[in-house]
Simulated assay, not measured.
Amino acid sequence: MLYVILIAAIVIFWLIAVDRPVLRISFEKGHITKVKGHLPPSFKHNLQDIAEHDPFDGEMKVYNQRTGMRLTFSKQVPKKVQQRIRNVFPHQGLKSHKGKKRA
């Protein structure tokens, strides 16, 4: 019985503590250096344009929530750049269903 409670506690801790973004993008000096997840081509083009105009370092993460997508930025990304990225973000075009089959 104790092992069942221990396994449940580990699973709950893993679900809460592990950072699981749908998309993670790293920037260095105005260039996209690392992408993990599905990045739509139009959004990538807009990000490159924004980063070339106002070079910055930092990281952007996109989380899938019940209410929609949530964007988070590292502290190095300026507020004006964050707003420009939020304005061009494709809320409808990002793939959020992973492993779900369509009927």
Rank of each mutant, 00 (worst) to 15 (best):
F73K: 05
Y63C: 09
Y63A: 03
K79P: 01
Y63N: 05
E59F: 04
K61L: 06
P55N: 03
R86H: 13
R86G: 07
L71S: 05
R70W: 05
V81Q: 15
F73R: 06
H53V: 14
Q65I: 00
I85S: 13
K80I: 04
R86Y: 03
V81R: 00
K80Q: 09
M69W: 03
M60C: 09
D57E: 14
K79I: 01
R86F: 06
M60R: 08
T72L: 05
F73E: 08
P55R: 11
T67K: 15
Y63P: 14
V81P: 05
K79N: 07
Q65V: 00
D57K: 06
M60W: 10
V62H: 00
N64I: 05
E59L: 12
N64S: 12
E52G: 10
T67A: 14
S74H: 03
L71T: 03
R66D: 09
R70C: 07
N64K: 14
D57V: 00
I85T: 06
H53P: 08
D57Y: 14
A51M: 11
Y63E: 10
N87M: 12
G68N: 07
N64G: 10
A51D: 00
H53S: 15
K80H: 10
R66T: 10
Y63F: 15
Q82N: 14
M60K: 06
K75V: 08
Q76I: 02
M69L: 14
K75F: 08
T67R: 14
E52P: 04
R70S: 10
S74R: 00
H53W: 15
V62N: 01
R86A: 15
K61A: 09
R70E: 12
T67D: 11
L71I: 13
N64V: 10
V77K: 04
N87W: 09
M69R: 09
T67V: 09
Q65F: 02
G58E: 06
K61G: 03
P55C: 06
Q82P: 15
N87P: 10
V77P: 10
N64E: 09
N64W: 06
A51T: 00
S74K: 00
V62R: 01
I85V: 15
P78K: 07
G68P: 10
M69G: 09
Y63S: 03
V81D: 00
Q76N: 14
K80Y: 04
E52D: 14
F73I: 00
R70Q: 13
Q65P: 00
S74P: 02
Q82V: 01
V81T: 14
K75Q: 13
H53K: 15
T67C: 04
F56A: 10
R66V: 07
S74C: 02
M60G: 04
E59G: 05
D54V: 06
Q83R: 13
A51H: 02
V81S: 13
K80P: 07
L71P: 01
F56T: 10
R70D: 07
Q83H: 12
E59Y: 04
